[in-house]
């Protein structure tokens, strides 16, 4: 079971408190009627589905109830960082910084023979 950090509660909580809510940073168009059928199709259905880093939304359903964003690796399931809804997509540097900050608290990930 994953531990997920809620950026509103500022605490790590077990996965069972959260629900997944799909890919992040797909804003609803301000005026859907201005979109072509293809553009609207892309908004509705087309997702990146990456192998690796994924920007996604979670909701702290059985906690504060807030929706927030997360960067998670779809191969390892590891969360690089979480951040509040409405904040822009973090840059590579910001993500790297968040990862190193969290691994500074714990020993480096490596084989320890």
């Amino acid at each position: 079971m994953l531990l997920i950090r809620c950026p509103y509660c500022e605490a790590e909580r077990p996965e069972v408190e959260f629900t997944y809510a799909g890919e992040a940073h797909i804003a609803r168009p301000a005026d859907p009627s201005a979109l072509s059928d293809e553009e609207w199709r892309d908004f509705l259905f087309i997702r990146t589905n990456p192998r690796g880093r994924h920007f996604e939304r979670w909701r702290h359903m059985h906690g504060c109830g807030r929706f927030f964003n997360a960067v998670r690796d779809t191969v390892t399931d590891k969360f690089a960082m979480t951040y509040k809804a409405g904040t822009p997509r973090p840059s590579d540097e910001e993500i790297a910084l968040a990862v190193s900050a969290s691994s500074a608290a714990t020993p480096a990930e490596e084989a320890r023979p």
């Binding site: 804003a27 609803r28 939304r57 909701r59 109830g65 807030r66 929706f67 809804a85 409405g86």
Partner: peptide
């Protein structure tokens, strides 16, 4: 809640 929190805050 989803719309209220994330689309129309």
């Amino acid at each position: 809640e989803d719309y209220l929190q994330t689309e129309w805050p």
